[in-house]
Nucleic acid binder design. Structure first.
Length: 878
RNA sequence: GCCGAGAUGGCGGAAUCGGUAGACGCAGCGGAUUCAAAAUCCGCCGUAGAAAUACGUGAGGGUUCGAGUCCCUCUCUCGGCACCA
């Protein structure tokens, strides 16, 4: 052992050793419990950022901790390799997306290896490789045949200048990010997966996921949005033809207060009205402007036009006018809603704006209705009763809904219905860099799935992308084919799949990445039995990725892929335990360019000017000294160029410091604003630890203290051993149950602070020191494995830390003779009290009352009440 | 707009089940060591106050012997909103 801590040397040596001994290789082994530790795989964007370091360090700490606990641990890694950034890079740098992607994978893999993660690289998958996506295509054909994938029209962002479909992210303030053109909505045919058929199961199963954070289950529950209500119709006659306008409502009790009906711009009634009236046509056109993102639509000013078409109220027979509203979504329910301005806040605002009737039909005792302003109670369904509602007057919410639904049903104009907010998953993308959809379009046979023998449909990799439409659609050598059914010339589908599809099952493929005969095999049963033991990833994936993964697992189950697994290993849910890490956020900086686009600048290239309180007031680009605009503080991302590359940190301090620092900075589930203040402290701590072990071991070797054998300890050593064994227990709890690593590190720091204050150096003290240092090396090993192994090798030559196992807590060392209780008078801290650990309540009360601090604050008053919290405090109330 | 989360010293954070607010670390200040510096070590470090003490966990209210923690109202920040991944 060298006197000086030199991280670069010991880290590279350790990494070479791990590679040579295949230390992280995971092999199925039924003789011990398995632990499948999964981190969300990265998109290969170029370089790692601190969010990745945080995510994968958490995973590595848990993996190594469970190795110490005797589990057979699997920690795999791969690449979410399809996606838009590769196409953007291709346009910018004129490099094929495949080439860019593979280069990024190579670089980022090197960074992950340099960080010392115990990853089994033999299981690596990259989703852009045919041996991966062929199975996705294979399952697609099965689902298509089962009717779980179908085709319908979907609305997309259309850039009329670039003649291309844009992602929501590429629409900025209603304009295309490259062309600057005003974006329009356009309907195109797309393939959809019937996730709504699984809505009930996806919802109900949330209750069986106790290992998931409550907030994630709640978000998914709200996303699925199961609501019970009534679907009913307004009959009408148009050009002599009778028809019905269907709507859904959860507030059927307010049906007598309907004063108009609103339909989406794409609704047939809107189309009909637009054909006759240029003003309505103009409004429908206006509704087509702008993108499809719900956040934009929901924050838009609510507008509408009357159509002049009237429908009949199904219960009152009154005529109700149909409006076209820009806030009604065609893809949601029936594309039409009933409007009850008196009891729906949005309808109220709309009615006030267009001076439509507001008819209150629910009253709440003690409240007076007024059309002047909206009041919270107008929408209260718990305390209301029907009024102005004829035969329904006096009924409460449940009774009114029941009676009204029954009356509608009797007229065959409605029924009770369960509706979900969840919509089917549109998976078609008009993009090149994705998994080809395995469908062949034949004029005679229709949409024909590609037969197994012709899979995979390989995506050509040497393709130039120019941003104007999908290059596949311009490649006859790709799309020209023959129909598998009739043999006539046919056209291959040129859309690719949503990249969420690849990330919905990669975690199963890790188990059997080398199987070229089947999508999954019995190794999946071994590793995934009871669910993946731990999944770690960003909270931003709380809904979409995690919901799609749950859905795909159920699809694979229902296609029969788990049928051959042992009973009990057939998966319903993929992830038993979920840890959602908070975002690592960083400031964004940009410049507005001449063509209206934003140029995002990396924080590392920006100099800041701060006010007296340290808040940034101005920023300049280091390269040219000119000002840049300070944007918001957002999650690190490629698109905003605010990712902080850990490389400089690793180069300067080493991987252990980087890992220790990011784990110490905050608990994993909290979002973390990036700052490197404190890195020095993490490095200093490792240097100090190194020096302590060096100083201790350079005197000569000594065996760790064995209680009951090595003799009685001084009070100081006894207290220190108590702290050591408390720390061992606390840190196991922090790693295992709480998954909070900053407090575990703090406990080791406190232990070393106490170690530094130990004065003794006689053999017994050295034995206790040895015991403590051996333990510390193991306790910290999950976080800082390189230095951990080095220190352990010095302390116990010839012994491997990975065989050491987690240190055992010596319960006897935890015992205390005396404890300290806090003394309060009227809840205010007035002193403390030392009592024997065995003291009973009466003795504690007596001693508390007798104490000087209490007597002083009682000032002669008689205590009214005495509260004793065992082991904590005494509160005296006067 | 809707859904979810968060706010504690100059800064990151601790307080795990309603019971010592500020552990641990950063920054800062003082000292030791050094020709000097770096590194290292020791001490101080919420605000006001000489002290006793009072105040103090985003703001306002409430429950309780006792509230950072529970309840109500509000503000701001972050994540998601179905084509960023």
């Amino acid at each position: 052992m060298l006197e000086k801590y030199q991280p670069a040397d010991i880290e590279l040596a350790a990494q070479q050793r791990w590679q040579k001994t295949a230390a992280a290789r995971a092999v199925e082994d039924t003789s011990c419990p398995k632990y499948y530790c999964l981190s969300m795989f990265p998109y290969p964007s170029g370089k790692l950022h601190m969010g990745h370091v945080r995510n994968y360090t958490i995973g590595d700490v848990l993996a190594r901790f469970h190795t110490l606990q005797g589990y057979n641990v699997l920690q795999p890694m791969g690449w979410d390799a399809f996606g838009m950034p590769a196409e953007n890079a291709a346009i910018q740098n004129k490099v094929p997306p495949a080439q860019w992607t593979y280069a990024n994978i190579e670089y980022m893999k090197g960074q992950l290896q340099r960080l010392g993660f115990a990853i089994d690289w033999e299981r690596e998958v990259a989703t852009c490789k045919p041996d991966y996506y062929r199975w996705e295509q294979w399952l697609f054909t099965r689902l298509f045949e089962k009717g779980l994938i179908y085709k319908k029209l979907g609305t997309v962002n259309w850039d009329p200048i670039d003649q291309t479909v844009l992602a929501n992210e590429q629409v900025i303030d209603g304009r295309g990010w490259r062309s600057g053109a005003l974006i329009e909505k356009r309907e195109i045919p797309m393939y959809y997966m019937k996730i709504t058929a699984y809505a009930d199961e996806l919802l109900a199963a949330l209750d069986d996921l106790p290992g998931w954070p409550e907030q994630v289950r709640l978000m998914q529950k709200n996303w699925i949005g199961k609501s019970t209500g009534v679907r009913f119709a307004f009959p009408y006659e148009l050009d002599g033809k009778a028809d019905q306008l269907w709507v859904f409502t959860t507030r059927a009790d307010t049906i007598m207060g309907v004063t108009f009906v609103a339909v989406a711009a794409e609704h047939p009634l809107a189309t009909y009205a637009a054909a006759k009236n240029p003003e309505i046509a103009a409004f429908v056109e206006e509704c087509k402007k702008g993108g499809v993102a719900e956040a934009d639509i929901a924050t838009m000013e609510k507008k509408g036009v009357p159509t002049g078409i009237f429908v009949t109220h199904p219960l009152t027979g009154e005529q109700v006018e149909v409006w076209v509203g820009n806030y009604v979504l065609m893809g949601y329910g029936d594309g039409a809603v009933m409007a009850v301005p008196a009891h729906d806040e949005r309808d109220f605002a709309f009615a006030k704006k267009y001076r439509l009737a507001i008819k209150p039909v629910v009253a709440v005792a003690g409240h007076e209705f007024s059309t002047d302003a909206w009041q919270e109670w107008y929408a209260d369904k718990a305390n209301g009763v029907c009024v102005n509602s004829g035969k329904y007057d006096g009924l409460d919410y449940a009774a009114a809904v029941y009676a009204i639904a029954a009356d509608l049903a009797a007229k065959e104009l409605g029924e009770k219905k369960v509706q979900f907010r969840l919509r089917d998953w549109g998976i078609s993308r008009q993009r090149y860099w994705g998994c080809p959809i395995p469908i062949i379009h034949c004029d005679c046979c229709g949409d024909v799935p590609v037969p197994d023998a012709q899979l995979p449909v390989v995506l050509p990799e040497n393709v130039v992308v120019d941003g104007a439409g999908s290059p596949l659609a311009r490649m006859p050598e790709f799309y020209e084919t023959t129909c598998p059914k009739c043999g006539k010339p046919a056209k291959r589908e040129t859309d690719t799949m949503d990249t969420f599809v690849e990330s919905s099952w990669y975690f199963l493929r890790y188990c059997c990445a080398d199987n070229d005969q089947a999508m999954v095999d019995e190794r999946v049963a071994y590793w995934c039995q009871g669910g993946i033991d731990q999944y770690i990833g960003g909270i931003e994936h709380a809904i979409l990725h995690l919901l799609y993964s749950r859905f795909w697992t159920k699809l694979m189950r229902d296609v029969g892929l788990f049928d051959n697994f042992p009973a009990g290993a057939r998966l319903d849910e993929p992830f038993a335990n979920l840890l959602t890490q908070g975002m690592v956020v960083a400031p964004t900086y940009y410049r507005d360019e001449a063509d209206g686009k934003k140029l995002w600048l990396n924080p590392a290239d920006v100099d800041l000017e701060c006010d007296a309180r340290g808040r940034p007031v101005a920023a300049t680009l280091r390269a040219d000294g000119q000002p840049v605009v300070i944007g918001g503080i957002e999650k690190m991302s490629k698109s905003k160029n605010n990712g902080v590359d850990p490389q400089a940190l690793i180069d300067q301090y080493g991987a252990d410091t980087a890992r220790l620092f990011i784990m110490f900075a905050s608990p994993p589930d909290q979002s973390l604003e990036w700052s490197d203040a404190g890195v020095d402290g993490a490095f200093r701590f490792l240097k100090r630890l190194w020096k302590i072990v060096y100083d201790h071991s350079s005197v000569g070797s000594v065996a760790a203290y064995v209680p009951g054998q090595d003799g009685e300890l001084s009070p100081a050593l006894k207290a220190f051993r108590r702290q050591l064994h408390l720390a061992i227990g606390k840190i196991a709890d922090d790693y295992g149950r709480r998954k909070q690593f900053n407090t575990a590190i703090a406990a080791v720091m406190e232990l070393l602070n106490a170690y530094g204050k130990l004065a003794d150096s006689e053999p017994l003290a050295r034995a206790v020191r040895q015991e403590a240092l051996e333990a510390v090396a193991v306790l910290l090993w999950p976080i800082v494995p390189h230095i951990g192994e080095e220190l352990y090798a010095t302390l116990k030559p010839g012994c491997a830390i990975s065989d050491a196992g987690w240190p055992k807590v010596d319960e006897a060392a935890l015992k205390q003779d005396e404890i300290e209780l806090m003394l309060q008078v009227n809840g205010k801290l007035r002193g403390s009290l030392r009592v024997p650990a065995s003291a009973d309540r009466a003795a504690i009360e007596a001693q508390a009352l007798a104490s000087e601090a209490v007597q002083k604050h009682l000032a002669g008053q008689a205590p009214k009440k005495l509260i004793v919290v065992p082991g904590r405090l005494v509160n005296i109330v006067v």
